Computed example of a mutant assay.
Amino acid sequence: MTEPKSGPVYPTALGASDLKTITLLGHDLAEDIMGSVGFGELAFWLATQRRPSTGETRVFEAVLAALADHGFTPTAIVTRLTYLSAPDSVQGALAAGLLGGGSRFLGVTEDTGRFLHDVLESLGGAVPRDETGWDEVALRTVRQRRETGKFVPGLGHHVHKTGDPRTPRLMRIATEEGLFGPHLSLFAAIGRVHPTVLGKTLPLNGAGVCGAALADLGLPLPLLRGFALLARTAGLIGQLAEEIRHPVARDVFLSVDLNNASVPPDPFVPEPFTEEGGEEGRTD
């Protein structure tokens, strides 16, 4: 084994190894973790550096199951198409699917968790004690979003228009484990009161309830999308496994390639530049 060179020390509570052992989270990986700690529990432990309770593990793993796969979504399709183009690059196919996790698919988990957290922060610690109090906060919140022309993250679904089956199930699990906290309480209240403001009833979607549940578990908000991507990685591996056995990517490709229609060019015309609302103030 190569001896470490003198110089700066980089402390970590995660993986470290020497000639005979591997240490992870202060435990012997081979003897204490392998065969004793499930992957969901380990993922939670790695992110928080504290071992979750049995109830926290159950809620967390329910979230992972809820987000693992939802059919032929864009992330699944692009994974299959990338594998068709480069079957020698499984990592490329998986990466292609994960890169599609954004504001419309998967990213809603983080968006909802952050949104709910911001509302709770604005209360200054004055958390409602009953359903009536939560409804008042939710009503005020939905009205403010409506007045500013913004959507409420986690509200609505393009398929489950009358109710996402994942939402009540995850809420029941959180309740059973005593982990139905303020984020889920606010989210549930939004589900009850929004028809009064919007004039229509929209479902609380599964990605949104997952964000609320993860936030109630105290997981870092900047990592909420990461947990959604962790879940979807398993789903994308399943998509690739099915693609290998029953390929459809070539049919998807040919359905577009053989049915395109040539049309005249439609040149892009940029909007006139103005000082207000133009490039000024950009940070990228």
Rank of each mutant, 00 (worst) to 15 (best):
A231Q: 02
G238D: 05
L229D: 03
L224H: 12
I244A: 11
Q239V: 03
I237C: 06
A212K: 03
A213Y: 06
L258S: 12
L236V: 02
G235V: 05
L236H: 04
V252H: 04
S255D: 08
V248F: 01
A212M: 11
A231R: 03
V209T: 10
D251F: 00
S255N: 09
S255C: 10
L230E: 11
G235Q: 08
F227S: 07
L217R: 08
R232T: 04
G208C: 06
G211C: 11
A241N: 07
V252C: 01
L221D: 11
F253G: 04
L223T: 05
R225K: 13
V209D: 06
L223P: 01
R232G: 04
R250C: 10
A215V: 11
A249F: 02
R245E: 14
E242G: 02
A228Y: 02
R245C: 09
L223G: 02
A261D: 08
R250A: 14
A234W: 01
R225H: 03
L230N: 00
L224S: 08
F253E: 11
L254A: 12
F253L: 11
G226L: 07
F253S: 07
E243C: 03
L221R: 13
N259D: 14
A228P: 02
A261P: 01
V248S: 08
R225M: 09
H246E: 09
A231K: 04
G226Y: 04
R225A: 03
G226K: 03
A234T: 14
V256T: 10
V252E: 00
A228W: 04
A228H: 04
A228E: 09
L223N: 12
I237G: 00
D216V: 13
V256Q: 13
L258F: 12
R250N: 10
L230M: 15
A212T: 12
L219A: 10
L230W: 12
L254K: 11
P247F: 06
D216N: 15
N260D: 15
L219Y: 14
D251M: 00
L240H: 02
A213E: 10
L254M: 12
G226M: 06
L217Q: 08
I244T: 10
V256K: 08
L223M: 15
V248Q: 02
P220V: 13
N260A: 15
P222W: 14
D251S: 07
T233D: 02
F227N: 10
A234C: 06
S255T: 06
L240G: 01
D257I: 10
F227H: 10
V209N: 07
A212Y: 04
L214P: 03
H246F: 08
L236Y: 05
G211Q: 04
N259L: 12
N260R: 15
F253M: 09
V252D: 02
L236D: 02
D216K: 15
L229T: 03
R225C: 03
I237W: 01
H246P: 00
R250E: 15
G238N: 02
L240W: 01
A261F: 15
N259E: 09
V248E: 04
V252N: 00
A213P: 11
A234K: 00
G218H: 13
A215N: 10
G235F: 00
E242T: 09
G211D: 05
